[in-house]
Simulated scan of single mutants.
Amino acid sequence: MALVVLSGQPCSGKSSVAAALKQLLEGKGLEVSIIDEPGLSMKRNLSYKDSISEKNTRGKLKSAVERAISKRHFIILDSLNNIKGYRYELWCIARAAGTRCCVVHCAVPKEQAWAWNEGREPDHDAYSSDVFEDLWRRYEEPDARQRWDAPLFRLAPDQGADSMQPVLQGVVDSLTEQAGPRQRSVVAKQLQPTQATSNAPLSATNLLAEIDGGAQDVIGRISAAQELAGSSGAGRVQMGDGVDDLQLSRPVTLGELRRHKRVFLKMSTQSLASRLPDRQSAQRMFVNYLREHVD
């Protein structure tokens, strides 16, 4: 139904806001999912320690949003979302899916954010001083004049739950079209897919070849990882190219992988063609298929 993009400096109370917003939406009987770094088995400090790690982190978060977004439930992206270009990419995902989208900006003083950071566990969620300062310096604040940052809701988590409640209720009303007459300007509109925000689907002439090629790329990476690991099993297989890594608990033979590929090809060409706009999507869906069918 909608994508809620939380944005804010490190340790600005975004996770608390996400939990409170989830509770309000679920109170209306709506299905809600929160996507964040810990939910994808990533530690925040390591995820933003350098430009390469940060790029990979944003890619994994964006891929998770692409997989989860639909017209049936709400997605709350609980992350920094500190780059305006990245927020534009998220808005394009929402538009391509034909859902609503809004941005919730959490703002707290730097001293309060650092105090909250020091109260976290060092090995779990706490940022080092260098990473914290770098992220704080590079933060690009949302601007409601930009269509990808609108509607924009601002709140201050350090002021307490009572001060946040009216803003959070406004977010819920905006996404469910229940805002009053004076609030009509903040209703999140239903975004419509356009050619600019949607990838052209694979043509019938090369559909099977592209899906087969994407699946074969995945098999190649698995085979290479297992060859390096020996008899102990590959464990985590890195896919790259915006595709989430695959965790294997046991060695998988080439014959078994080929059998899975044949089933996936048959299933894809019969019922999933409209959801496969490019080769990377085929790779991503084959990895998800293996994740479900390889014990």
Rank of each mutant, 00 (worst) to 15 (best):
L248D: 07
G230S: 13
V237N: 13
E133N: 13
R58I: 01
I219Y: 03
A18N: 01
A273F: 05
A113N: 05
F286A: 05
Q190M: 08
T253N: 13
I35M: 02
E54C: 06
V186H: 04
S41V: 02
I83D: 13
D217W: 08
L30M: 14
S174V: 04
V167R: 04
A115M: 09
R72N: 09
R138D: 14
S198R: 12
T99F: 01
K60A: 12
K49F: 02
S198T: 15
L40A: 09
A107H: 06
M164G: 02
A2F: 02
F74A: 05
P151C: 10
N56W: 00
L202C: 03
K28I: 00
Q178T: 08
P277S: 06
T176I: 03
E177F: 00
Q192A: 15
Y289R: 12
E37R: 15
A204K: 15
L208Q: 13
G233R: 08
L135S: 04
V5C: 09
L135A: 00
L155W: 01
R250Y: 10
T57N: 05
T197F: 07
N82D: 13
R100K: 15
K189S: 14
C101T: 02
G39K: 03
K71D: 04
L207H: 15
E89T: 07
I83M: 07
A225M: 10
A204H: 15
D123N: 15
C106W: 02
K261A: 06
Q159W: 06
V237Y: 12
W114G: 05
D158V: 03
G59Q: 05
E292F: 07
C106Q: 06
T194L: 14
S271I: 06
C102E: 14
D143E: 10
G8F: 08
A224G: 09
I219S: 11
E227I: 09
A19G: 09
V172C: 03
T99S: 03
S281T: 08
V32T: 09
D162K: 12
S249L: 11
A209I: 08
A156Y: 12
T176F: 05
G180K: 00
R154N: 14
D241G: 07
E140K: 11
D78Y: 06
V252W: 06
L25V: 04
G160V: 01
R279F: 14
K71C: 00
W91T: 01
S268N: 00
L80I: 03
N81K: 02
F264Q: 00
Q283T: 01
L228H: 13
R221I: 12
G27A: 04
Q283F: 08
S223D: 12
A126G: 03
R138I: 09
Y289N: 10
D245H: 15
F264G: 05
E111G: 00
S79I: 03
V65H: 02
K22R: 15
A209C: 10
L90D: 07
V104M: 05
I35V: 11
V65K: 04
S33K: 14
I34R: 08
V17Q: 08
W148N: 03
A179H: 03
V252D: 09
E31P: 01
L80C: 01
S7H: 11
E140L: 10
D212R: 14
M285G: 00
L207S: 14
T176E: 02
